[in-house]
Design a binder for these strands. Sequence first.
DNA 1: AAGATTCTTGAACGGTCATTCAGTTAGGCT
DNA 2: AGCCTAACTGAATGACCGTTCAAGAATCTT
Lengths: 216, 216
Amino acid sequence: MGKAALAAKAPEERRERILRATIAVVRARGFAGTRVTDIAVEAGTSQGLILYHFGSLAGAFAASLTLLEDEFYEELDRNLSEVVGPVPRLRHIAELGAGHGPAVGDWRLWLELWVRAIRDDDARAARESLDTRWRGALRQVVDEGLAAGVFEASDPKASVLRLAALMDGLAIQLALAEPGMTPSKFTELWWQSAVLELGISPVSAVTGSKGGQKKN
Amino acid sequence: MGKAALAAKAPEERRERILRATIAVVRARGFAGTRVTDIAVEAGTSQGLILYHFGSLAGAFAASLTLLEDEFYEELDRNLSEVVGPVPRLRHIAELGAGHGPAVGDWRLWLELWVRAIRDDDARAARESLDTRWRGALRQVVDEGLAAGVFEASDPKASVLRLAALMDGLAIQLALAEPGMTPSKFTELWWQSAVLELGISPVSAVTGSKGGQKKN
DNA sequence: AAGATTCTTGAACGGTCATTCAGTTAGGCT
DNA sequence: AGCCTAACTGAATGACCGTTCAAGAATCTT
């Protein structure tokens, strides 16, 4: 009976383990390079089980995307509630993008998702949903700042769109390890744009970072 | 003999036809979805010939990337020489990105290249070279503008980096047909950032477009 | 505890596809 | 013309890989 308690894996647990394994493998090999066997090995199960639960490899991909979404949302909320005040929060976002925060940070996975979204409807829906949510969070911070009078923007919607797009664009270079692009450079470049775009005063801009203006 | 003149295809011609076909198929199906047969059909040759010339499918991919580079360079130069003066030229760039100009415009192909660059060295080299060249062109326009006194930027290098990255980021939305993103919106969003980033005066900003400020 | 149901396995199947290859054609050279 | 090499073909090969399946656990029901 003690044995049973240890050996017994709820099927649900198995399912989730497979989905996590799927994400891990896609991260490492990309969608195109992911085999059923890879997932099985990573999850410590058989190939058969993957097909049993998800019907096909594509089905496993699709299901793993919704897990990815859930975790992204959760983490985003957790991250943003960590910091208060529009400027520090925006600054926090600038740092998040650079790769702090595990789920948010893996830009290569994002690239994979974008390309898959060109032709796969599940991926398209997932990426759109993620993007909307992400822009919404950014929008919310911007609105807070506008209300508090520390940001100014003639067209907040456009500003948010641009800042979000800029982050994606910078992310590409980070993901591809473009020489000269580092996480801290990423953060600074984006932050500068935010300052410019939202008319953040130099004083608050510097104070934005929690630790003051110490650089290293 | 007349016959010979018509029928005779220089092998070089065949080679190039295959490379063009490769690009076309990748554009349509992505790297992951491209089969040797597809290329053969598109090029009107046999599968065998592709392998004969390029050794492998990956080889054909690699070779087609250098053709892509060449055409990109050529087209970029052609496009930029069309317009004179820093402001109109920058404006022209804003419009180019939105998809005018065939080779420059196909952002989906760019996405494919980015993802392939994660794991394939040839793709990585090609994309880096393309990117460098592209940023160089942007940089040149910015320098012109600075010299002429119509732009101002405290850190031109960073400005160029940001403007280039922003274009990539916006391109993703264009490539994925994000609802609400259109070529003209793309152009306007980017242009606004350029105006902000380079301190372009409203007067020249409006005159930037060749046709004056007509909107429709 | 017997039976039914769900879960799990891994071997076998079958299709797809890059690559090979034996042979054909065409062009250039003498 | 006759030979040699490069270009070219497409059928055959063989590996890889998603999916199927028959059978075996585990769990649940009563």
